[in-house]
Design a protein around this nucleic acid. Sequence first.
DNA 1: CTGTTAGCGCATTCAA
DNA 2: TTGAATGCGCTAACAG
Lengths: 344, 344
Amino acid sequence: MRQTKRVTIKDVAEEAGVSAQTVSRVINDRPDVSDETRAHVQNIINRLGYSPNILARSLIQGRSNTLGVVGYGLEYFGSAGVLTGIERKTNEFGFSLLLSLLDQFQPARVDHILKELLSRQVEGIIWAVPGQVPTFHWLTEKFERMNVPVVFLNKEQTNEHVIVAMNNQLGGRLATEHLLQQGYRRIGIITGPHDWWEAQERELGWRKAMQEAGHADLEMLRVVGDWSAASGEVGLHTLHAKAPDLEAVFASNDQMALGALQAARRIGLRVPQDLGIVGFDDIPEAAYFSPPLTTVRQNLKALGALAVEQIKNMIATRQNDEEFNARIDWVDPSLIIRKSSSRV
Amino acid sequence: MRQTKRVTIKDVAEEAGVSAQTVSRVINDRPDVSDETRAHVQNIINRLGYSPNILARSLIQGRSNTLGVVGYGLEYFGSAGVLTGIERKTNEFGFSLLLSLLDQFQPARVDHILKELLSRQVEGIIWAVPGQVPTFHWLTEKFERMNVPVVFLNKEQTNEHVIVAMNNQLGGRLATEHLLQQGYRRIGIITGPHDWWEAQERELGWRKAMQEAGHADLEMLRVVGDWSAASGEVGLHTLHAKAPDLEAVFASNDQMALGALQAARRIGLRVPQDLGIVGFDDIPEAAYFSPPLTTVRQNLKALGALAVEQIKNMIATRQNDEEFNARIDWVDPSLIIRKSSSRV
DNA sequence: CTGTTAGCGCATTCAA
DNA sequence: TTGAATGCGCTAACAG
C-alpha cells in the first residue's frame, strides 16, 4: 500500500475518451447521457475505483451535506442513546456527521470546536451537551454571530432557540405519582446536580406531584447527588437521617437508585415493603437489580432523531429565505413498573 | 437569522485593502507579514466574523485533516469508551472526526459508509466494529482497493492488518487465575456470542488457565450467552444444571455477571461463599451490585487513543512514500477485586 | 514584506 | 447528447 494519487474525474474522462463533463453527468445520474456512454463510463469508474471528491463538489454547490454534533461524556447513558439517534437520522438524510466531544465546559475549547465546525461548512449544529444552565447565555451570543442553524437538546425553553427536549418534568411526575398510588406518602428525592436542567425538571415534577398531593416541608425530603451510585448511597443515608419516616425515594437516575438500594440494604430497609424506590433512565441493568428497579424510560434515539429533523427544517427554511421561529418539541418518557416500588 | 453568504477571503482582502494572499498569510500564521498589516487584517477578520473554508484548503493541499470512524452500537459499554478515546486523541492531533455507526453488518450499508468516507477524503479510517470474525475477509478486500490507512480495533492478528487490541485473553486468564487462587476449583464460563473475537479470546484465557491448573472436561463448564443480563441468568441456571458441583463462574461481561448473580440468588447459592463470580468490563454499576462484582477493567480510552496514534503513523509513513507493516498493539486489562469472588 | 498567476476537483452555464 | 469555458475559496510558486 503506497501513496497513490487519487483518481480524479479527469482521469476517468481521459480513460473513457469523453469529457469530464460527461463523467460528471454519469456520477450524478443526470438523464442527458446516452445509455451506451453511461455504461461505458460507469465501467471505467468501477475499474479505476474512482469516487468523486465531495469536498470539491461542496465548494461549488455551497453545500457540505454535513452536520456537526457537540456531545458530552458518552459514558452517560443519555449521551450515548441520543448520539445513536442523531447518527442514524443524519445518515438517513444523506448527511455526514462530524463529532466533537466536550469533557468539561471550557469556553476556549467550545470556541475551538465551533470554529472548526464552521470552517468545515457544516449546515447545522446539534448542541447535545446536557444541562449546565449557566453556560447558555454565553453560548447564545456565540451562535448568533455564527449564522448557522442550531438545535439544542434538553435545554430550558426560551423565545430565541430551537429546542428538542425530553419531558423530564413529566418523568418526575410519573415516578412520584406512581409511588403515591402505591400508598407511599413521605417520598423523598435524590436529585442530580443543581446546574443540570434535567435534574431541575425531574425534581420539579416530583415537587409538583407532592404538592398536589398535599405534602409540605419538601426540603426535608430532598438531597442532592452527582448521578453516581456512590452519591445515591450517601444520599439515602442522609435522607434517612433527616427524615426517619421516609417511605419512598425517587432517584433522578438509575445509578443513584442503585446506590440507594445498596444503602437501604445496609440500613435494613426492605425494598419495596419498607421503602419504595424509583429511578430514571431504564439502563439495561435496571431490570436485574435486586429488586428489579421501577424507572422512567426515555426514548433517547427518538430525541436524537427529532433534533436532526429540526435541523433539516431549519436548513430548508433558510434556503427559502424565510425566517425560522424559536420552538420547543417534547418527547415524553414512560414509566416502567418493576418490583422496587410495587407494594400493593 | 437569514440566509447570508459566508464571508470569504476576498471580502476580507477587499475590506482590508490588501491581496487575498496576504489575508491567507495572516490566517495561516505565516511569518512574512508585517506586524502592522497582520494586526489590521486580523481586525477586519474579527469584525467580519470570517472563518476560512477548510474544504477549499483541503482541495489544494490534498489533505483533509479528517479521520473516519466506523463504530457499533454505543449502548455497548466498550463502544462508547473506545469512541471517547478516539475522539479525544483525534482532536488533540488537530483532526476532525466523521462518525458512522453500524447497526448490523450489512454489506450494502458498509459499502455506502466506506464510499462516503472516501469521498470526503478522510486520511484514515478506524474500524471500531467489534468482533464478527466472518466478516473480516470480505472487508479486507474492500479496504485493499481503497488505498487508505485503516486501523482495526479488537480483531484477531493477521499478517496484513494494523490492529490495536485489548488483551482479552489476558483478561480471561486474570479472572480465572484469581478464582483459582481463591480456592474455587470447578470454574465455569458464560461466554459471549461465538462470532465475537472478544468472546473467543476471553474464553481462551479461561480455557488455558483451567488446563494449566489441571482441569479437564471443560465443555461441561461452558455455556454461551449474548451479552445480556437475561442470558447470564439463563446461563447460570443451565450451568448449574449441567454441573451441580460448580464453584465459580467467569462471565464474559458484567451484564451477564449481573444476570448470574440474580440466578444464584434464586437457586439459593450465596455469593461468594457458595459461588464465586467474576465479570468483565467494570461498568460503573459493578461496584454496587450485591455483592460488589469482581471484574476485569479495560482501559478503553487508551485503546481508542492508540488506534488514532497508529493511524497518524500510517499517514506519516505514506507521506514518506514508505511501506507500513502489519502489526498488532496490545492494551492490557487489569483485575478489579471485589466481594463477589473473595472467599479467602 | 506584498501581490500576481495558476490551479486543486468538480458542477454550472452555455454553445455545438 | 456532448463539450468548452468559467469559477467555487483557497494556497503554492513565483515575482517584485
